[in-house]
Structures are given as C-alpha cells and as structure tokens.
C-alpha cells in the first residue's frame, strides 16, 4: 500500500504543475510587492534601493489620506448596508411560511452573478444627471432633487460604494440565510416558549449562533471596501478630481499611468498590511469559542 500510494512519479505529476504555477503567478508577485516597495523603480530598469523612503513619501502624500478615507467610507458602507440588509432579509425569509421565497431569493442573488462592468454601466445610466432612472423617479414623484450624483465631490464616493453594496448584498444574504437555516429549530422555539419576542429571540439566539458567518461577512465586506477598485475605474476614474481615489486605485494610477512602479507597490504593501490587521481584529472581536451548538 505504501508503495502504491507513495508512487513518486504520480506524486510529482499530480503536484508539481500546481505548485510551480502558483509560486510563479501568485507567491512570487506577492513577495515582489514588499520587496519593490523599497525601490525607486520605473518598471523597466533595475531600480534604486531607497529602503523606507517610499513609505515616508506615502505618509506625507495628501492623496494617500484621501484614498485611505475613501477606503474606510467604502468599507463601512459595504459592512452596514450588505450585512444589515442581508441580516433582516435572511432572518425574515428563514421563516418557512413566507410566500414566494424562491422568487425573493433569486431576486436578491441575481446581481451577484453579473459582471462588475455591466453593473457599473447600468448604474452610470441610472445616475445620469439628465436621463437617469433615479432622477426620473424623483421627477415623477415631484421632488425637485435632480442632480448629477457622480460629479458632486461630496456624494460621489457614496454613490460608487452604493453600487458595490447593491451588487453584492445578495452574496451576504445567501451566506447568512445558509447560516440561519443550519441552526436547529429548537433553539428559537425554546426562546419563544420563554416568551421572547421574535426579533428579540433572533437577537439573543440566532445572531450569536451565526457568529462564524458574521466574521466571514465582516472580513469580506471590509477588506472588499478597502480593496475597492473596479467600481471607480469604470464609473469615475477616481474623480471628480481625486474625490473617489482608493488605495488600489492610487496604486494603479502610480504604476500604469505615471510609471512610478515602486511607489505604487508601496501603496499595495500598505493595503496588504491594513487588510491583515482588519482580518485579525475581526477574528479577535468576534470570539470563536463562545459558540457551542
């Protein structure tokens, strides 16, 4: 048996392609991000080692703070909207007596399977200052609220984040619904027999039992917000001015538009550290071992 399952040729044949491909395409560039963040580098020449000067420059760059702030706004918007709405929908629909459950579930999830480009183009049309759906609705309701959502520096980042929140809410909904359905009925019934109101029972019983899923949802929403890129690339190009820059967008511009590859990777390295801290903090805050089924 040992000889049978220890067949060296088979092991190499099965394992090596994946290891090699993964190392070259994923791990090597990941290490390069940190290494290159200490270089003054245009992407063509060998570059000059400048140690932490890029980081110093980053912390003095006003654009960095704009990007950081937008990343945080984006992350909070996603966490609050997706997890908040997702929770209400998932808990309500987990009641088996609701009619049209199948239809409702499909409606919430459909935007998730669309490409980000289609979703952004669609929302560009909806936000359009003259003919957009949203302004049309206000017009029909007789509310004089017409405006160009994306060219106003104050609303633009919220408008962009809302698009991402809208598209991926269904994903969080599906995760939360799966978690809610996996909780044994008795727990909720016991709480109800004790006289707890439905939402109180959910708050005290169901939601704590879903802690693992919430942990995942928060990590996903917050790191997703901090990493946001495609939405601004397609919808605003970082504008108006630099009002919708995020760190990933800043990195993209530095490297592919200005040719400062070293400085771009510095922003990326900072982003990786930021995401690791957030992931770690969420895992600490939402404790794992309190939950025993």
């Amino acid at each position: 048996m040992n000889k049978f399952l220890g067949n060296k040729t088979a092991i190499l044949l099965f394992t090596l392609p994946t290891i090699v491909l993964f190392t070259i395409i994923v791990m090597w560039p990941t290490m390069q991000v940190f290494y290159r963040s200490m270089f003054d580098w245009d992407g063509l020449s060998a570059g000059k080692f400048i140690f932490l000067d890029n980081y110093k420059r980053l912390f003095e760059d006003r654009l960095f703070y704009t990007s950081l702030k937008n990343g945080i706004i984006f992350a909070i918007m996603l966490a609050v909207l997706q997890i908040g709405i997702g929770t209400v929908l998932a808990l309500t629909i987990s009641n088996k007596k609701i009619r049209g459950r199948k239809f409702l579930r499909v409606s919430y999830f459909i935007p998730v399977v669309l490409s980000v480009t289609v979703v952004c183009q669609l929302w560009l049309a909806m936000y359009n200052g003259e003919y957009g759906l949203i302004n049309k609705i206000f017009e029909t309701l007789g509310i004089p609220y017409r405006q160009d959502w994306l060219s106003n520096g104050k609303t633009a980042i919220y408008a962009v984040a809302a698009v991402n929140a809208w598209q991926n809410m269904g994903y969080h909904f599906a995760l939360l619904l799966a978690a809610a359905n996996s909780i044994p009925e008795q727990y909720l019934e016991a709480a109800k027999i004790d006289g707890a109101e439905k939402w109180k029972a959910h708050w005290k019983v169901t939601i704590p039992l879903m802690a693992e899923t919430y942990k995942f949802c928060f990590v996903l929403a917050i790191t997703g917000g901090l990493n946001a890129f495609a939405n601004m690339q397609i919808m605003t190009g970082g504008g108006p001015g630099t009002d919708t820059y995020t760190l990933t967008y800043m990195m993209y511009r530095s490297a592919f538009r200005v040719g400062e590859f070293g400085y771009g990777t510095t922003a990326a390295a900072f982003l990786v550290i930021q995401c690791l801290i957030v992931t770690f903090a969420i895992n600490k805050l939402i404790a794992r071992d309190r939950i025993v089924y």
Partner: peptide
C-alpha cells in the same frame, strides 16, 4: 505544508499584486 501553501492564495487579493504580475 504543500496544501497550506496553496491555500494562502485565497487571502491574496488580485488587485494588490497587479504591478508585479504585469511586469512578470
């Protein structure tokens, strides 16, 4: 260890390694 090594990939966001990947 090999399995754990491959799983690291799930935690690397594509956007972050765009620059080195493009150079590669």
């Amino acid at each position: 260890i090999a399995q754990m090594y491959i799983v690291i990939g799930m935690f690397v966001p594509v956007q972050v390694i765009m620059i080195p990947l493009a150079i590669l």
